[in-house]
Simulated scan of single mutants.
Amino acid sequence: RTCPADHGCRQSGHDARVSIIVKFFVAPDDTSASLALQSGPEPAFESLSFGNFDPEEAVLEWECLLAGGSFEDLAEAGEPRIVAGQDNDGCVVFALSPRLSTALADAEHARLRDVAASWTRLRAEDGEVIGTEIADAIVGDLAAFVSSARRQNQSVYCWVA
């Protein structure tokens, strides 16, 4: 079955939508993570929910801000790596790169706050308003989530609807 239309699913790619559902979740591997495609990660996987930002674009920006490199180079290298998804108006599951996971897990709180502030400015340049407190919460909560997943020897994925 396809993702329900009322979820506001979007085409995979880097097109921002006004109202999307973003759920980062922990899974042992790509095969397990792909099972979340149709109905989302709950209740099978521990998850962290957000909304109203383009997570595919965000993870590339966060990786650039935390670990260096260019957005274009990451995108050309196939990041974020799609684990499961549909081409037309479907939900998508992608993996956080090992490099981003390490950078998030290893970053001090002050560094995460700086990244959140920089991300807020980047989004504002594209006309997207993300409040500083919300950006802090997203980046900080995700860093803690990734750290917990790494302690469990698991990976973090993202389900977007």
Rank of each mutant, 00 (worst) to 15 (best):
V160Y: 02
F53R: 12
A137Y: 15
S49Y: 06
T102M: 14
A44V: 10
R81C: 06
E42W: 08
Q154G: 01
A84I: 00
A116G: 00
I20C: 11
E125P: 03
P28D: 06
L96K: 14
G8A: 15
V156A: 03
S155I: 03
S12V: 08
P28L: 09
S19G: 03
A144H: 04
E133C: 01
H7R: 13
S39A: 15
L104M: 10
V22F: 07
L35G: 12
C3D: 13
E42A: 01
L48G: 02
S34F: 06
G78W: 04
A27F: 14
E128A: 04
L96G: 14
H14E: 07
S39G: 03
I130R: 03
E72N: 03
L74G: 00
A36H: 06
D106P: 14
E42Q: 09
W119Y: 14
H14N: 05
R1H: 15
G69A: 08
V146A: 09
P41A: 06
F53Y: 06
L96V: 07
S97M: 13
A95F: 11
Q38L: 10
E72A: 10
V156R: 11
G40P: 05
S70N: 01
G140R: 05
G13I: 04
A110M: 14
R99N: 06
S49W: 05
H109V: 12
D141C: 06
F45Y: 13
K23F: 05
A16D: 11
E76I: 01
E61R: 15
G40T: 02
E125Y: 05
T31A: 04
A27K: 05
D114K: 05
S101N: 13
D114I: 10
F24K: 13
I82Y: 02
D54S: 12
D87R: 01
I82K: 11
Q154V: 07
A95P: 09
D73I: 00
A16Q: 10
A36P: 03
F50L: 03
A5H: 13
G68D: 04
V83K: 08
C3M: 11
L104R: 11
G78T: 09
G40Q: 00
G85K: 01
S47F: 13
L100G: 14
D106S: 15
P41K: 15
F94T: 12
A16V: 05
F145R: 06
Q38C: 02
S155F: 01
L122G: 15
G69P: 01
E46P: 03
P98I: 13
C91R: 10
R81G: 06
L142N: 01
F94Q: 09
G68W: 08
S97K: 15
A144L: 03
N52G: 12
S147N: 05
E125H: 07
T31W: 00
L66C: 02
A36K: 01
D136N: 10
A84N: 04
V59H: 09
S101Q: 07
L48K: 07
D73V: 02
Y157P: 02
V26G: 00
A135R: 08
A124S: 11
S101V: 10
S147H: 06
A103E: 15
R123I: 05
S39V: 03
A110N: 14
A67I: 08
A16R: 15
D136F: 04
C9K: 00
F94L: 07
Q11N: 08
S12G: 00
D15R: 10
D136R: 12
L37T: 08
F53D: 07
A33H: 02
W119L: 10
P55F: 08
I130C: 01
N153R: 11
S49K: 09
A137I: 11
T2Y: 06
G90Q: 01
S19K: 12
